[in-house]
Amino acid sequence: MENGLRNAPWRRSSYSGNTGGDCVEVADGFRGAVPVRDSKNATGAVLILGTDAWRAFVDGLR
């Protein structure tokens, strides 16, 4: 998955705006996983969450 992450299309939430603040980015298209990274450090570490864990995280934010 690591090589695929290098070329993955990363996206930010539309709620993040363009101020360059504390945002996370996610990459779509990985079966059973949601890669997550810090938007301020695009070459840094990537956290890989299972889809159930990602869903629980997003539901908890609502």
Rank of each mutant, 00 (worst) to 15 (best):
R31L: 12
L5R: 05
D38N: 08
R37I: 09
E25T: 05
N18R: 12
V26N: 06
T43M: 11
R37N: 11
Y15L: 12
L61C: 13
D22K: 12
R37T: 08
V24W: 03
D52V: 12
R62K: 15
R12K: 15
A33F: 13
G20A: 06
A53S: 14
N18I: 11
G44I: 06
G29S: 06
F30R: 04
A56K: 14
V58W: 09
N18K: 08
A8T: 09
P35L: 07
D22V: 13
G21T: 00
R62V: 10
D22L: 12
F30L: 11
R37W: 10
A27M: 03
V26M: 04
R55L: 11
G32A: 08
P9I: 13
N7K: 14
G29K: 06
G29D: 09
A42C: 05
T43K: 13
L47N: 08
D28W: 03
V46R: 01
A33W: 15
G17E: 09
L61V: 11
I48W: 07
V26H: 00
A8H: 08
S16I: 02
L49W: 05
F57T: 10
W54K: 09
L49R: 13
W54C: 09
D22W: 00
N3F: 04
G60Q: 05
K40V: 03
A42F: 03
L61Q: 14
N7I: 14
S39G: 01
L61G: 12
S14D: 02
S16A: 11
N7D: 15
S39E: 04
A27K: 06
E2N: 11
G44L: 03
Y15A: 12
G60N: 09
V36L: 14
L49V: 07
D59S: 15
A53M: 05
F57I: 10
W10L: 01
D38R: 02
Y15K: 08
A27T: 07
G32W: 08
E2V: 12
V58A: 12
F30T: 07
W54R: 05
A56E: 13
A8S: 06
K40H: 11
D52L: 09
G20P: 05
G32K: 08
F57D: 02
G20L: 08
F30N: 06
D52E: 15
S13R: 02
E25K: 04
M1V: 12
R31S: 15
A8E: 03
A56N: 13
E2W: 01
W10P: 02
V58F: 11
C23R: 03
N18Q: 15
R31Y: 01
D38M: 03
N18D: 11
G17D: 10
W54G: 07
N3Y: 00
G32V: 06
R31G: 04
D38F: 02
L5D: 09
G32T: 02
D52Q: 14
R12W: 00
L61A: 12
G21E: 14
C23Y: 03
E25C: 01
V36T: 07
A45P: 14
P35M: 09
V26Y: 04
W54D: 10
T43N: 15
S39P: 07
D22S: 13
G20Q: 05
A45N: 08
N41A: 14
S39M: 02
R31P: 12
A45Y: 01
T51P: 00
V36I: 15
D28M: 04
G60R: 10
V34W: 04
R12T: 12
V26D: 06
W54L: 08
W10G: 01
N41D: 15
G60W: 06
N41L: 12
